[in-house]
Computed example of a mutant assay.
Amino acid sequence: MSEILILTHVDYCPAGHLARVLDERQLDFTVLRVDLGELDGYDLDSPKAVAIMGGPMSANDPLPWLDTEIAALRHFIARDIPLLGHCLGGQLLAKALGAAVHRMPYREIGWQPLWQASQAQGNAWLQHLPDEFPIYQWHGDTFDIPPGAQRLLSSPWCPNQAFAWDDKVLGLQGHPEMTEDLVRLWLTDWAHLLDETQPSQQSMGKMLDDLPSKVAALNQVAEGFYRRWLELAFS
């Protein structure tokens, strides 16, 4: 059994660039589809690092497997291993830590600017980042900052874009794991959710413009998070 666990919730929200980073480092990892019951019976004491990916469902949906996942996350938190949540994954971490997740009055979609919170300067999760940078977004829910956690990042449309709890838990609202193929897939399959009249959303054209360079820059953002996550697990 591998020491790295990735939890996913739907086939079109995979590990993305995270899987590529792990493959390049020749690190074995296990991917479980929690929505298909694959977390049931898993040895929660085996992984040394856990990543939680995104999904279209709400962290508040009455789905039994979400309760199973939140209970597992609380077990991992108690074990003091590094946890990294992406979008829904960040929201589930927030819930596991006692914070609320709630619907926003709009969706935040596209390449949106993020900036570091003033109190987050010097945080180890952000050492590779400038004060402001873009990240890909696609969400309609957001998390509150959990008790005892530190807000790290904000955007114009969502003040709680990232939090750190203790030194090993990072919850992100955005999608640093995106690849070119994933962006194109989402814009094909989810185009009906786009509404260019909302200022919180980019047009499809703007999202696809100069996509290779945008994704390459996003990969650098992601790799800094993943490097820190792996160092905490294996150094």
Rank of each mutant, 00 (worst) to 15 (best):
E223R: 04
R107P: 00
F133H: 13
I6A: 08
L182V: 05
A164L: 10
K168D: 01
D35G: 12
Q202Y: 09
K95F: 02
Y42M: 15
T142E: 03
V221N: 10
G140D: 03
A149F: 10
C87M: 02
Q198S: 12
G174K: 11
Q198T: 05
D131I: 05
E132A: 14
D167L: 01
G90I: 06
L36P: 04
L187G: 04
D181G: 13
T8P: 10
S200Y: 09
P105Y: 01
S203R: 02
L208Y: 01
L126W: 03
T142N: 04
G224C: 09
W125V: 02
Q127F: 08
D35N: 15
V34L: 00
V101D: 07
D144L: 06
A78I: 15
A100P: 00
L63Y: 11
L84F: 14
A149W: 06
V31E: 12
L27H: 12
H102P: 04
Q201H: 03
L152K: 01
A78W: 14
P130F: 05
E180M: 13
G85L: 14
A71C: 03
R20K: 14
L126Y: 05
D195A: 05
A71Q: 13
S213A: 07
I52W: 00
D43W: 11
H128I: 01
K48E: 08
V10R: 08
G89H: 13
D210L: 00
A94R: 07
G16R: 01
H128A: 05
A71W: 08
G122E: 12
P64D: 11
G205Q: 05
G140E: 03
A49E: 05
T8Y: 05
P156L: 03
Q119L: 02
M1G: 14
P47G: 05
N219M: 09
V183D: 01
Y136A: 13
L185Y: 15
T179L: 12
A117N: 00
W138I: 13
